[in-house]
């Protein structure tokens, strides 16, 4: 059978979501942000809620997310997306609201907004892309930069004594009563993507059922920041980030997983 016979429209089983625009992604080749952007839109499209969803894009590599995500979106000042989203969800309780933030945005400048939106149990979804570095500004140390990990502002590797240890913000907020579900994922293999997709769908389901705050952390490579090829970076992520930031469910239906 010729390839041309196979690639007929009726045989298509996978393609880019129609909820993503045609704008080429600004993310570096092989970056997890691209996969995350697409996956979230695939879920929103499949759930048929794109007309009732409002996204909040932060400052960081994903600041241009609204050029790629074909839904209503507003751009928040650095670290403030949870506050911006809080007001949207409070004034439009029937809408699906999500923030999409990096580690610097959510766990450094926006720590207070993150903790208090979670503590209030706002009925929304927070997507937290953790690549252990500030990507957009060229690879500086972030709150989740690992011990010994080099960056442009920890050129000799992160030293706990002077720079503190990597912040487990997700485990931190998981303890807040208002937080309904928390899980950590990665997107470098098809198995991980499929698992993450289930969690993303569940998160928006939680919103529909008004269960409170759903928090999804997605570990990602940062090829330009880590100065590695995408596949090497993904391997590095598995060997180094997974032990410190273990994948899986952290809180399910309001109960911490022991």
């Amino acid at each position: 059978m010729e390839v041309l016979d196979i690639i007929k429209p009726e045989n298509q089983v996978f393609c880019k979501s129609q909820l993503m625009t045609d704008t080429p992604l600004s993310y570096c080749p092989g970056c997890g942000h691209g996969t995350a952007n697409n996956l979230i839109m695939e879920v929103i499209d499949e759930m048929g809620i794109s007309e009732d969803t409002i996204g909040v894009a932060p400052v960081g590599c994903s600041v241009l997310a609204y050029d790629f995500m074909n839904i209503d979106m507003t751009q928040a000042a650095h670290g403030r997306a949870p506050a911006v989203a809080t007001a949207i969800v409070r004034t439009w309780p029937e809408k699906y609201v999500f923030t999409y933030q990096g580690d610097g945005d959510l766990a450094a400048i926006g720590t207070a907004e993150t903790i208090h939106a979670c503590n209030r149990g706002e009925n929304m979804v927070i997507f937290f892309i953790n690549n252990g570095i500030y990507g957009m500004t060229g690879g500086q140390m972030a709150p989740t930069t690992l011990e010994g990990m080099k960056s442009s502002t920890s050129p000799y590797g992160r030293e706990i004594a002077t720079m503190g240890s990597p912040l487990k913000i997700t485990e931190l907020i998981a303890n807040l009563p208002g937080v309904y579900s928390v899980s950590r994922h990665a997107l470098h293999t098809h198995k991980h993507v499929r698992k993450a997709k289930i969690a993303i769908r569940q998160a928006f389901e939680n919103t529909r059922l008004k269960k409170g705050l759903s928090f999804i952390e997605i570990l990602s490579n940062c090829n330009s920041g880590w100065k590695m090829t995408p596949n090497d970076a993904n391997e590095w992520m598995v060997e180094n980030m997974f032990p410190y930031f273990p994948l899986g469910d952290i809180k399910v239906e309001g109960k911490l997983k022991v």
């Binding site: 928040a76 000042a77 403030r80 506050a83 911006v84 809080t86 007001a87 949207i88 004034t91 439009w92």
Partner: peptide, 16 residues
């Protein structure tokens, strides 16, 4: 939680 959060909440509601 802070004046900063408050003004960004205004920004959020005003966006809609």
């Amino acid at each position: 939680e802070s004046e900063i959060a408050a003004i960004n909440m205004v920004y959020g509601a005003a966006s809609t």
